[in-house]
């Protein structure tokens, strides 16, 4: 099989996931897009492992490790999303703006806890 087929499929899956991460508002949909990107990486790893006929099977072992780490990541990520939802009543990542810099606070009177950043 031509190596370009799995490589191009991985590239397109990765860019689909990239679009989803950038364009979605719900935090769980962003997590789904992250899963798509991880799958693209896994497909690349498997394709190159089969192409190179690695005796250590590094690509397939790394794919297994990536899948396990993705499972751990999705568990922690969902716990964080649920915690945010419980505290805020929303899982909309566009509204989590507590750490955003206020437009007026940069040159006006700084807020008490941003004095250090404004002085720096």
């Amino acid at each position: 099989m031509h190596l370009a087929y799995p490589a191009v499929l991985a590239v397109l899956l990765f860019c689909t996931g990239l679009y989803g991460v950038l364009a979605r508002r719900n935090a769980i949909l962003v997590l789904m897009s992250v899963e798509l990107m991880l799958n693209a990486v896994n497909l690349n790893l498997v394709a190159f492992d089969v192409w190179l006929r690695d005796t250590l099977h590094a690509g397939q072992a790394l794919t297994l490790f990536t899948i396990a780490i993705a499972a751990a990541e999705i568990g922690i990520g969902l716990a964080i999303v649920l915690l945010v939802y419980r505290n805020r009543g929303s899982s909309d990542i566009d509204r989590l703006r507590d750490l955003a810099e206020k437009p007026g606070a940069a040159d006006g009177e700084p807020q008490p806890d941003t004095t250090a950043e404004a002085a720096a």
């Binding site: 860019c15 689909t16 990239l18 679009y19 950038l22 364009a23 979605r24 508002r25 719900n26 949909l29 566009d94």
Partner: peptide, 13 residues
């Protein structure tokens, strides 16, 4: 479901 920066995301992707 989609954010306001959908077109920028589409261009980047």
């Amino acid at each position: 479901a989609d954010s306001g920066n959908r077109w920028a995301a589409l261009v980047v992707a």
